[in-house]
């Protein structure tokens, strides 16, 4: 707040009013965002309370809160959330690293890239969930299969995204490296990789969402623990409170992970953003 005050010194009255208006608008939007959430929850609770909707089918905020407290108390919540988070992070990390390495390989070897490009496009179009049965047979029914599913869902799109970033590296800068007599390795480490940090970060952002899809899908197929397992289990025994609670925990975890990546993006964007 002090910073703002300091900045405002020396501005005309009209400009200070303009800034104040901007700030008021920003605050209003924030209030509305929270308001939407509050209204939906209140309506949900109210309708369930007065019997307009069947809380056995729809659950309700208070029942979810109670379930959450119960799960937290007997340690179940932490256990299952940790399992899913672990699988997701593993899938996310493996897919990003492998995808980037494959993209580097394809950039390095042009005939290989030209050969494999159509195959990549078809693999990308394939709904990976269709490979579920194959994955179970190959990887068994443990966490390995779930991580594999997450990797499978993320990795192709990572390769395609990062590779297209590599291919769009500024031609003039590549010419500069040519005139300096740079080797392919020098071009990669001094130009192509640093120039594509933003591309790789945006791949991370996409992978956050996709790796959650992968791990939950995986848990639907095979699992004895995890949030996906809780959701499936809750559905089978008609414990909608459990289903809703697990879904909300999932929401919070996914949002937190996305937030972390977004912060990271902000940190690197300033330095690596193209000409500015």
């Amino acid at each position: 707040m002090n910073d703002v005050k300091k900045k405002e010194q020396g501005f005309s009255k009209a400009h200070i009013e303009f800034l104040a208006k901007k700030r008021r608008e920003k605050i209003a939007i924030y209030c509305c965002r929270v308001g939407v959430l509050v209204v939906v929850l209140a309506l949900w609770e109210l309708l369930a309370f007065c019997g307009a909707i069947d809380a056995f089918i729809t659950s309700s905020p208070s029942r979810i809160a109670a379930k959450l407290a119960q799960l937290a108390a007997d340690g179940e919540l932490f256990k299952h959330a940790a399992v899913t988070l672990g699988e997701t992070l593993a899938g996310f990390a493996i897919a990003t690293v492998v995808g980037t390495l494959v993209a580097i390989g394809l950039w390095w070897c042009e005939p290989l890239r030209k050969t494999l490009e159509p195959h990549l496009v078809i693999l990308n179009a394939l709904p990976k969930i269709a490979l579920g049965p194959i994955i179970i047979i190959w990887m068994g029914s443990g966490a390995g299969a779930i991580v594999f599913m997450a990797v499978l869902i993320c990795v192709i799109i990572t390769v395609i995204g990062v590779l297209s970033g590599f291919m769009q590296t500024d031609k003039g800068k590549l010419t500069l490296m040519d005139t300096l007599g740079a080797t392919k390795r020098q071009k990669l480490t001094m130009l192509v990789l640093p120039a594509n940090i933003p591309t790789i970060v945006s791949a991370l952002k996409i992978n956050v969402g996709l790796s959650w899809v992968g791990s939950i899908m995986g848990e639907y197929l095979v699992s004895r623990a995890g949030l996906g397992y809780l959701i499936i289990y809750g559905g089978q025994v008609f414990d909608l409170d459990l289903v809703m609670t697990s879904t909300i925990v999932l929401c919070v975890l996914a949002a937190a992970m996305y937030g972390a990546v977004a912060l990271f993006e902000k940190a690197v964007a300033k330095k690596f953003d193209a000409e500015s």
Binding site: D170, T175, M177, T179, L180, G181, Q186, M190, E275, S276
Partner: peptide, 30 residues
């Protein structure tokens, strides 16, 4: 090759490097 220094139409400075590091790029590559 090393007798020649090439200068292009655009400066092609790397935005993620400081001026001194940009200037030293040619030496680093060579």
């Amino acid at each position: 090759k090393d007798k020649c220094g090439y200068m292009l139409q655009r400066d092609e400075l790397f935005p993620w490097l400081t001026i001194i590091d940009n200037v030293l790029l040619s030496a680093k590559v060579k």
